[in-house]
Write a protein that binds this DNA or RNA. Structure first.
Lengths: 225, 225
DNA sequence: ATGAGGTATCGGGGATTCCCCGATATTAAA
DNA sequence: TTTAATATCGGGGAATCCCCGATACCTCAT
């Protein structure tokens, strides 16, 4: 750290990056009412945001994940590489551990959900400017830790699962019940249930429909099948 | 329900419905700065929104499409049926003609994209209160007209279901159990099970994962949700 | 080599859900 | 007015979900 003086400071300069102009306007209205915060610009596009930062580096960037051209995670990766002093607060709709882990891996210091409480936004900014990380309260840190530990990076959200667990997951998503799965794999129903419980823990998903949606997302099954 | 009298009026009372609390806060901040507009409430849930409206009908509802429990289009359908004086402004991320057509069919008078310009929000509200329709500038009216004329067919797979059945299906696909669904709809668990059984018969799908895949296919829920 | 940790295999047991049966009230259609 | 469809419930048994704990194996590091 060099001049990273995160002590008390006049005003923190923030850049808004989100592809929804209305949402940007809303966030700007919120932040403008916050003491010690100044929104110095906004962008609806990742590349444009990078240009802006090159011209005039802000203290923090409020970054949406889904952006046209260059998505938020790529932007974060670039920033943490070339502008390590710029704090990165990710704004996402997804609470899944794999998303959070990916964001942190990309260099974000904070992760907020779009349906976080307003107070959390202020909280997150305060934490970031104090040099701390901030994860939205609705997120299970332990599960995220496990994702980070295994170094899951790309699409490999499913990489954290063992082959056996993936197999069970697929069978569940295909609509097979525990009885049928047990017979097919020549194991006890109890074993199948144990696998299901373990992979649920690991993914942070605790109901069958959630598993099905996850399995579809990672391409383990499709909606026809 | 009183007269429509969309002439000159003191303040227009608006209800915000969106499942992202931060976005609601932002929109509220924006609308609060608008002359003649008062946000009288917000909700992150379709059913909750309906309750609110029953207690205290607003002049307009700013409605997100994707909502947990009961999605925005169903809410719009209900409102246009039972509260025709309540103006409906849809807020969506999708600019596709089929989405717009569906919204208009459901009874919306306005359709805004989340990346619309801020001015369009004011414009849309003004139009609605003047009794006119408003479509976001980025939308091709002609294409939408064509969809409306031909009576789009892609959705017809779900048309075989009753509104109640679609609602139950959505809740199931979101991962809510019978107990939770029953509580939310103020009916018996047995009723929920009956609906599930009936819609399963009708679709020829006899397991929950299959229902989830179907719900995703017809766009009732998505893999993130 | 010994112990720690992850994986795969089971069981008990209670709460919940699933899935069959039937019943009633209301409404829409024939 | 009969018929059909819809929405609402209940009984009851089978299957499941979900918590607990246990054992065996394998790897890896101390």
């Amino acid at each position: 750290m060099q001049k990273t003086s995160y002590g008390q400071q006049s005003t923190r300069r923030i850049l808004l990056v989100d592809d929804h102009s209305l949402l940007r306007a809303g966030m700007r209205a919120l932040l403008d009412d916050m003491a010690g915060i100044a929104v110095i610009g906004e962008s609806g596009d990742g590349l444009e945001a990078l240009e802006f930062i090159r011209r005039d580096p802000p203290d923090a960037v409020l970054l949406d994940v889904s952006l046209p051209g260059m998505n938020g995670l790529e932007v974060a990766r670039y920033l943490s590489q070339h502008y390590p002093d710029v704090r990165i607060l990710i704004l996402s709709m997804h609470s899944g551990a794999e998303y959070v882990a990916r964001a942190l891996n990309a260099g974000a210091q904070g992760y907020l959900l779009k349906d976080s409480a307003f107070d959390e936004l202020a909280e997150a900014l305060k934490a970031l400017f104090a040099g701390r990380e901030y994860l939205c309260a609705a997120i299970d840190r332990d599960v995220v830790e496990r994702f980070l530990a295994t170094g899951s990076d790309a699409i490999s959200a499913a990489e954290v699962l063992t082959p056996r667990q993936r197999q069970i997951l697929q069978l569940i998503a295909e609509g097979r019940g525990p009885r049928e799965i047990a017979d097919r794999l020549n194991v006890s129903v109890k074993t199948v249930e144990a696998h299901r419980a373990q992979l649920m823990d690991r993914l942070g998903i605790h109901n069958v429909p959630g598993l099905v949606r996850f399995a579809i997302r990672i391409g383990l099954v499709n909606t026809e099948s």
